[in-house]
Computed example of a mutant assay.
Amino acid sequence: MASIARSLRPVASRFSARSSRNAASWRPSIVVRSFSASKTAVQVKKYTKDHEWIELSDDKKTGVIGISEYAAHALGDVVYVELPTTPMDVAAGDSIGAVESVKSASDINSPISCKIVAVNDLLEEKPGIINNGPEDVGAGGGWVAKVEVDEVGVKDLEGLMDHAAYKDFTEE
């Protein structure tokens, strides 16, 4: 199977052109409120050039992996998701599963070296969840796997893009 990035190349130009015209139609409005001065957990979210993301907890010991919103929109209706087995030790760039849509099939690669400890079993029953919330880490979201991270995985983060850099990358 091809990586998500290679599968998206034929549709990327159409998607980015369409999304720039209709960007406001699918972006949620943001409301900022300040309720208290209590310290909140800071999540570290990074993206790969192959359109996967990882969100690490503030202690950088656990995280969640999935495919980006850009990839989910470009793939179209997802009809099947192959999930990784657990537990599984993987290196950065290793294939951990696959996603098939009406347009194409793509591998899901691990953004960093880590140990997969849980998967989103809901995706096997309802693969379309990825289209509705590919970056949602909640119980009904489209995340793919939960992972444990060691020092090597944290070091792998240095080669990934933050949200602003990823947005620029997808708009090219």
Rank of each mutant, 00 (worst) to 15 (best):
R33M: 10
I30Y: 03
P10L: 05
N22T: 07
F35Q: 12
S19M: 06
S29Y: 04
R27G: 00
F15W: 15
S34N: 11
A23Y: 10
I30H: 01
V11M: 08
L8T: 01
S25F: 04
S25C: 06
S13H: 11
L8N: 00
V31D: 13
R9S: 08
V11Q: 05
V11G: 02
A23D: 10
S7P: 01
A24R: 05
R14Q: 12
L8Q: 01
P10V: 02
R27E: 04
F15A: 15
S25N: 07
S16M: 14
R33D: 11
S16V: 15
R33N: 13
V32G: 01
S25E: 12
R14F: 07
S19D: 14
A12L: 13
R21F: 02
R9P: 01
S13R: 15
F35G: 10
W26N: 01
N22R: 06
S16Y: 04
S34F: 03
A17D: 15
S19F: 03
V31M: 12
R18S: 13
I30D: 05
F35S: 13
R9D: 09
A24T: 12
F15K: 11
P10R: 00
L8M: 02
R33A: 10
F35K: 09
R27P: 00
R21W: 04
A17M: 12
V31E: 14
S13V: 14
A17G: 09
P28G: 03
S34G: 06
V11K: 09
R18K: 14
N22C: 03
W26V: 05
S20C: 11
V11H: 06
A17F: 07
S29H: 08
R6Q: 07
S20I: 08
S25D: 15
I30E: 13
V11N: 07
N22Q: 06
R27V: 03
V32M: 02
S19I: 05
R9K: 07
V31G: 08
R27F: 04
N22V: 07
L8A: 00
N22M: 09
R6G: 01
P28A: 04
